[in-house]
């Protein structure tokens, strides 16, 4: 090998994101570069703190890192557009925006301004909106419910629907849901939730995942590290990233369908929300992010508002014209 990178990620070794995104990327890079580049994945918290992968790269402790813009939303809300936000585009439209609508270039420019070279490595399917002890079918049902969630969705739930967002650390979610300490929780896509066992703790499963219609992970390197790379290797690694993202999304779809079949066979009840309610939830999410962008603009930082306008325009055409697609949905 010419190049060896130890690459930490923000999730534990063996978890779906680790296997499906990072390990798959390592394998694809090895294959496409003929073994000239060796990527050695590390689980969360081993080489650098789980949520400080970007810092670890910036400090030079590791050459590259794998994480999600979600963890940077508090620092700069523009990250929410890349991370996926409540009421935003689903995976089908989003991946098209990323690769064909200028999303990838926008992300890469954004990271370049922070001194990073970014590679999109992993776009996910929609999450499960909730595993719940109580049925939720309309907006009023959410009022006063203790809902384990975080990020933008927590704000939307609280400000627009009167729910009570509750911070529960990862290891305690299962137990607190089972003991009815919280009424409902959201975590990941169906295939990600299955091994967490939430369906064994609570009866109702609420879909679709308006709160997180898709999600994106990236590999970042310091610009110098990337620049120092042999010119022949760069396009190969970029192709490996693209390939990984496509394969990983398809794999999520396939595993999610199997997971939902498992849920449906068991004693759980799957509640699919009415389209009107989904629209109501989505509009609240879009309102939230629009206000964020406007606030930044009024502070003299128009970048987020500009990007959001581009995003919304893409979503609008997609929504208007995608009815020609066959989706095979019941």
């Amino acid at each position: 090998q010419e190049v060896t990178w130890q690459v930490p990620t923000s999730v534990p070794e063996g978890s779906p994101y680790y296997v499906n995104f990072l390990e798959r990327f390592a394998d694809n890079v090895e294959l496409l570069t003929d073994g000239r580049v060796d990527i050695e994945p590390f689980g969360a918290g081993v080489l650098v703190p789980a949520l400080q992968v970007y810092e670890g790269v910036a400090d030079g402790v590791v050459q590259a890192g794998h994480s999600t813009p979600s963890y940077r939303v508090n620092q700069d809300p523009m990250n929410a557009i890349f991370a996926g936000f409540p009421g935003g585009m689903g995976p089908e439209a989003f991946i098209t925006w990323i690769y064909e609508g200028g999303g990838k270039e926008a992300l890469y420019d954004f990271r370049a301004s922070e001194g990073f070279k970014s590679l999109v490595v992993g776009i996910g399917s929609s999450e499960i909106m909730a595993h719940s002890n109580v049925p939720v079918r309309k907006a009023e049902d959410l009022k006063g419910l203790k809902y384990r969630t975080s990020g933008p969705w927590a704000e939307v739930m609280k400000d627009y629907f009167g729910a009570v967002p509750t911070v529960v650390p990862p290891g305690e979610i299962y137990t607190l849901l089972q003991r009815k300490g919280v009424d409902l929780i959201e975590w990941g896509p169906p295939s990600g939730n299955l091994p967490e066992g939430f369906h064994e703790a609570a009866k109702y499963i609420i879909v679709p995942g308006v709160h997180q219609p898709t999600f994106l992970w990236e590999v970042v390197l310091k610009q110098e590290t990337w620049d120092a790379l042999d010119g022949e290797l760069k396009p190969l690694i970029e192709k490996a990233a693209d390939l990984t993202t496509m394969q990983a999304l398809l794999h999520f779809y396939a595993e999610d369908v199997k997971a939902l079949e498992t849920y449906r066979k068991g004693p759980n009840e799957i509640i699919t929300l009415d389209p009107e309610f989904v629209t109501e939830l989505s509009e609240a999410g879009v309102d939230w992010i629009t206000k964020k962008a406007e606030t930044l603009k009024s502070e003299g930082k128009p970048e987020m508002a500009e990007l959001l306008a581009n995003y919304m325009a893409f979503e609008k055409s997609w929504a208007a014209e995608s009815s020609y697609l066959i989706r095979n949905q019941d």
């Binding site: 949520l51 940077r72 508090n74 620092q75 967002p165 911070v167």
Partner: peptide, 10 residues
């Protein structure tokens, strides 16, 4: 001006 990564309190 770094803020907490995942906390809604930030």
């Amino acid at each position: 001006g770094e803020v907490e990564m995942v906390s809604p309190w930030a």
